[in-house]
Computed example of a mutant assay.
Amino acid sequence: MRTLFILLLVSINFAFGQVSKDSELFLALQKHDSIFFERGFNRCDIDYLVKMTHKDLVFYHDRGGIQDKNKFLENTKKNLCSDSNKKPIRKVRKESLEVFPLYNNGVLYGVVQTGIHDFFIREPNKEDIYTGTAKFTHVYLLENKEWILKEVLSFDHK
């Protein structure tokens, strides 16, 4: 009986825990994170951000407060995209990424993605200058076969 209980606990953890870093889901979200932040944050493709963020986006920032989608886009334009001579850049620590699937009656509808990212300032013809780090938690919803950013926790900025 005890062995059955332990097997049940292990299977529940496996079914609802972090996916393997070589799984199709993890690799898809790792790629999505890379594209999302390269285009939206590093290249300031605002049209892409508009498309890939949920209409009811909620962004919790430990220094900038709570932002809805409009405030998030406004702050991105103002704080990240206004000076190409001193451009903030985000790079994820690949080894820190974790992906946790969200299911409804066995159907995948979203994921929670966590990790650590480092920030830099990029100036023309210079190497990127490290400026800090933070932790993040993202909730992505799977809508029409695309991962749409719904909720963000950005915290522990140093």
Rank of each mutant, 00 (worst) to 15 (best):
R2W: 04
F5H: 12
L7I: 10
L8R: 10
L9R: 05
V10A: 08
S11A: 15
N13M: 10
F14H: 14
F14I: 13
F14T: 13
F14N: 10
A15R: 07
A15S: 13
Q18C: 14
V19N: 03
S23C: 02
S23Y: 01
L27T: 11
L27C: 11
A28F: 04
L29W: 06
D33Y: 01
S34L: 13
I35P: 01
F37C: 00
R39D: 04
G40E: 06
G40I: 02
G40V: 00
F41M: 11
N42P: 08
N42R: 06
R43H: 13
C44T: 05
I46V: 13
I46M: 10
D47Q: 11
M52I: 08
T53P: 01
T53V: 08
H54P: 09
D56H: 11
Y60M: 05
Y60Q: 04
D62G: 10
I66C: 07
Q67N: 06
D68I: 04
K69T: 03
N70Q: 12
F72Q: 10
L73K: 03
E74C: 02
K77R: 15
K78E: 13
K78R: 03
L80C: 06
L80D: 03
L80Y: 13
C81N: 00
S84P: 13
N85F: 14
N85W: 10
N85T: 15
N85Q: 14
K86G: 01
I89G: 11
R90Q: 06
R90T: 03
R90D: 00
K91N: 13
K94G: 12
S96P: 09
L97H: 14
L97I: 13
L97T: 12
L97Q: 12
V99I: 06
P101S: 13
L102I: 14
G106D: 06
V107L: 08
V107E: 15
L108E: 09
Y109R: 12
Y109T: 05
V111E: 05
V112L: 14
V112W: 14
I116A: 04
H117W: 03
H117M: 10
H117K: 06
E123D: 13
P124C: 11
I129Y: 12
I129W: 01
Y130K: 12
T131M: 04
T131I: 15
T131W: 04
G132H: 08
T137H: 04
H138M: 10
Y140T: 00
E146V: 02
I148M: 09
I148H: 06
L149S: 02
K150Q: 03
E151I: 12
V152G: 00
S154V: 03
D156V: 00
D156P: 02
